[in-house]
Write a protein that binds this DNA or RNA. Structure first.
Lengths: 139, 139
DNA sequence: TATTGTTATACTCTATAACTATA
DNA sequence: TATAGTTATAGAGTATAACAATA
């Protein structure tokens, strides 16, 4: 199918194809890839404000509001006012959110591995490294 | 920024970042990446019907209708009824479409090259090959 | 005045369902 | 009956602008 060799096409459709693997794999946990990304960044060490979380994911703060509304309604994250700056919300995973993060990550990784099978382990690693390099901040 | 290591995130944001390079580069020619992909597939040898073109790009036929409406309004493609099956449209590039394809492709490739600079030529090639492999049809 | 979160809104991209005409 | 193109429509995802609370 890859009759078009343009990088934009390749990236877009690889993403689309990947979701056909990871979507069903994560469905039992009630979240999708975007939500998993939010949970992942929130679990990464320090407690983050909504805006900080949005920045780390490269999305708009208004998009983060909507994403967190859903995750909070599912009981996976909690918002509380920042103790020293009442404008900010500190967002944290609930115990259920931590569990979901763990299980959905495992399911997503397994599906991702299946998607990448034909590359082999070394090239799969290389692909991710190259994409990470293209996204690294100092551009 | 690539604090999230998930493949879906990497693919999505690499695509987003790429567009920041190719978008402005192609703007002088009045088309975007999706439209260039359509022109490219239409220029590839045999004359295609709308549905065939849609299939080669992995998009829906109704999406192709809208895309072609725009390209036709810009004078870049022409539709004519298939001589042996009046249900079908044969879609072809106009002379202006061929010119735009040539120029916009060059501009897009240059921008793509700039985006990929830090990978080096060999890895840039490798990246595209790996993505192409992931998209190849026999899965 | 500037920042954080929020809301309202709008825009882009895409697909599904139903229609028309042809086969 | 089935297929190609079309239209109407709706949903997902995202951003911009304006507002309230707080700094």
């Amino acid at each position: 199918m890859a009759s078009v060799e343009r990088l934009g096409y390749l990236l877009k459709h690889a993403h689309k194809r990947l979701i056909e693997f990871t979507g069903p794999a994560m469905a039992p946990y009630g979240i999708d890839g975007r939500e998993l990304a939010v949970l992942t960044v929130l679990a990464g060490g320090e407690a983050l404000s909504q805006q900080q979380a949005a920045q780390r994911l490269g999305i708009d703060r208004t998009t983060m509001v909507a994403l967190l509304d859903v995750l909070e309604a599912k009981g996976l994250v909690g918002r509380r006012t920042h103790p020293e700056d009442r404008r900010k919300n500190v967002v944290e995973l609930t115990p259920s959110g931590q569990e979901t993060l763990r299980d959905a990550t495992a399911a997503s990784n397994a599906a991702e591995g299946e998607f990448l099978t034909r590359l082999g382990t070394a090239d799969a690693r290389r692909l991710k490294d190259m994409l990470g390099l293209l996204l690294s901040e100092d551009r």
